[in-house]
């Protein structure tokens, strides 16, 4: 189903203004895209992280849906517990009318999902809860001051992979979280980039309406973490897809496909843009250009080419 902005604007936004996310952070836009994609009653859980702390500084909350935060590594376990409560209460006829057909959505950053929360995520996916887990991936521990996570790309300057005489930044490739999630054989998993809001909302809608566990990995540029201007997220989101750094992928019942611009590139209808176009205006990669680290830039391009080849093959190209 296509979404029309003229209809969406009439609905209540799920996240009120007055939150203290950084100016220009797309995470609230991601929340908007996910939660506005269906009209179900929704209950959200949130891992500790930027989104959690900045939207709920007591006594203020930006959330207009029931929302729970417990800790960093357990957003998936928390959503399991809420979903279990839903069924437990329903079994006894104690579920309020306004919560019937509710959907359960967990949010977590990449630190809380790829790293410390992966056990809880894997457990929840395996148990088959009727839930959606949304990772907003800003490629590092941004809330604690820009440390590397297993989602940080090669070459990025972070506070735990600082550039120095013996260091060009992070040395390891990103963890392929999507493949790990798909290996649980859940009914729905996808990647999204918030500039392509239609693609993101369609995927969100499918993910929410899927019976059983679903997963979305949402690209989420970070203003201070990537050292980019406050109005840069949309353009970078677009470039991440155009360079195949962040392909738009959908895996429905084990069937992989590419969507949006990624599909056009795979179909030969659009050019795959060189990775440097995505990297050159980000402060976290600046040293690669000023120090003329062409070997590292080549390494990064090779890594993108490798993963793009992999996803293309998975999608049957």
């Amino acid at each position: 189903m296509a979404f029309l902005l003229k209809d969406l604007i009439k609905k209540q936004a799920p996240l009120a203004s007055g939150h203290r996310m950084c100016a220009g952070c797309p995470a609230p836009v991601i929340v908007k895209q996910v939660l506005m994609s269906t009209d179900h009653p929704k209950v959200c859980t949130n891992a500790t992280g930027c989104l959690e702390v900045a939207t709920t500084i007591f006594p203020f909350t930006s959330w207009k849906v029931p929302w729970l935060h417990i800790a960093f590594e357990n957003s998936a376990a928390a959503v399991s517990g809420v979903e279990a409560a839903y069924h437990g209460l329903a079994n006894k006829g104690e579920l309020p009318e306004d919560m019937k057909n509710a959907k359960f959505i967990a949010f977590g950053g990449d630190g809380g999902t790829y790293d410390i929360g992966i056990q809880a995520l894997s457990g929840a996916l395996e148990r088959g809860h009727n839930m959606l887990y949304v990772c907003y991936d800003n490629e590092g521990y941004m809330n604690t001051g820009i440390q590397r996570s297993s989602a940080t790309p090669i070459g990025a300057n972070t506070t735990t992979t600082p550039v120095g005489s013996q260091s060009y930044g992070k040395r390891e490739i990103r963890k392929d979280l999507l493949s790990i999630v798909v290996a649980h054989h859940i009914p729905y998993a996808a990647t999204c980039a918030p500039h392509d809001w239609m693609d993101g909302m369609k995927k969100s809608q499918k993910a929410i309406e899927t019976e059983g566990p679903a997963f979305l990995n949402y690209f989420s540029p970070c203003i201070p973490g990537w050292k980019i201007p406050a109005d840069a997220w949309r353009k970078l989101s677009e470039l991440a897809v155009k360079t195949c750094f962040w392909p738009l992928i959908e895996v429905e019942n084990g069937k992989w496909s590419l969507t949006g611009e990624s599909k056009r590139i795979a179909d030969g209808k659009a050019e795959k843009v060189p990775a440097v176009e995505f990297m050159k205006n980000q402060g976290r990669f600046k040293h690669l250009f000023t120090q003329k680290k062409d070997d590292v830039l080549a390494l990064i391009q090779a890594d993108i080419d490798r993963s793009w080849d992999f996803y293309r093959k998975m999608a049957g190209y």
Binding site: S17, G18, H19, T55, I57, P59, F60, T61
Partner: peptide, 12 residues
């Protein structure tokens, strides 16, 4: 916090 969306009262 029992008042949903009350961050509206915080001016950024």
């Amino acid at each position: 916090i029992l008042e949903a969306g009350n961050s509206k009262n915080y001016f950024t």
